[in-house]
Structure formats: structure tokens, C-alpha cells
Amino acid sequence: MSALTFRLKGEPDERIDCSSLVPDRLKSLGSSEIEKLPVGTTKRGLVAGDVFEISGDDAADIRFEGGSSRLDRIGERMSEGAIRVSGDAGFRVGRVMSGGDLQVEGSVGDLCGSGLEGGCIRVKGDCGAKLGGPDAGEMKGMSGGTIRVHGNAGERAGDRMRRGTILIDGDCGKDAASRMIAGTLIVGGHARGAPGRLMKRGTLLLMGGAERFTPTFVDAGVHDLLILKLMADGLRETFGDVPFDGSAMRKMSGDTAVLGLGEVYLPA
């Protein structure tokens, strides 16, 4: 068996909905049925065969070759298997994904990993706003799984995050972990805005510091905690390298404007 490959015929002239091109859905379909799956978002009614050259037959190993920022909803609701995108992808990549492995070689748009429940998403480039956050009207962001972004992240990464781990190597936009409920967000670079604004619980590691904190965060001193070492070791096993080593860090407690049981760690 060879990887089921969707090779982009050319830059799409409309946004493409790839939510049906996931292992869960494709494993029971033949090639002719896959070609007829609707992927268009306009009244033209584009199907997969119009947009992609399709080859291979292993639905547990899906490849998108020739990425585009117009390829939306890749890996949405997938629960098993692997998807690899050799290029950019659009918004909602891996939204409400519950299992499996999703890798994007390029950059992705907003709401990547939104509502993530399980599995692992890796983005080699940058990502847009609300990484792992809730969609409009939703009360919770991601509730499990792991996201690794090698580049920078947009505004409000980890918004209303409930559980799971986000690891951003680069900088992050304004107000990361806003309204965080629990979980862990690690930023290797600088965090703009006021990270952790209105966070109730949860853990933030900001290795490049923060632009500012709201006055409702309080300094809790420098602490050498075993959990930081275990997290560094555990994430290193998954990702190979992480932007912290588990040594002592300064803790800020907050946001006391709400529950106040969140924790932000900064280099000591």
C-alpha cells in the first residue's frame, strides 16, 4: 500500500473544504468515490477530483502535496491515522481532532487545533490566531492532545484552553492563554500583550518573557520544581527538542481577577 496522496493541480480559485479527506472517512471509500467527494465552497460544486490528482490507497496515511492557504479544515474531526501537508494550509486545521498525527510543513491559518480533543498537530511554520482556541460561540478551547508550532503564533493562542499542551517555539501574538481554564502553554519566544489575562487555572511558560501582565498577577518567587523537569523530559521525548530545560523559574500567580489559580513561569 502507498500513501493516499492529494496532489494540488494548481492554486485553487476558491477556498477548499478538506474536512472530508480524513482517514476516518476515506478508509471505507474506493478511489472513484473519493474523487467525487465535495470539497468546493461555492455554487460551482467542486469535487476532490477537480482540485487534486489522487493516487495511492492507504487511507491511514494521507498526504497533501503542494499546499495552499486556501486548503481549509484539513484533518478536522480526524480520530486516527496520519495526515501530512507539504506546504501551507488554511484555517481550522485539525479542529476537534481526537486522535492521530497531523503535520504541516508550511504555515496555517486561524483556529488551528481549535477544540482539539486528542492526537498531535505539528506545524513547521507559523500559525494564525486562536491556536487551540474555541470557535465562535463555544465555551471551551482544546481539551486534550498536543500542538507544536515551530514558528510564531497569532493572537490568543490557547484561548479558553481546558486541557492538553501547546508548544510554540517562536513568539506569540497578543493575550496568549486568555481565559485559560487549564492545560499547558509553552512559548519559546516573546509573548505580546498581556498573556494569561483572566486565566483561572493552567500553566504558562514564557521563555522569552512577556510584554506585560495585568496588575492582577502576583510574583510568587523563584522555584525549582520537579514538574518542570518532567515536562521538559516528557516533551523532549515527543518532540526531540523543547525551549526549556526544567531548571528553576520565576512564578507569577494569577489571574486574581478570576479564580487566581493559574501559574506563569518566567526565566529566573
Partner: peptide, 9 residues
Amino acid sequence: GFQVSKKFA
């Protein structure tokens, strides 16, 4: 009430 749950790896 100050206990913290951490799940990773």
C-alpha cells in the same frame, strides 16, 4: 483546592 493536575506525554 490548590492541587494542580498535569497531563503530558
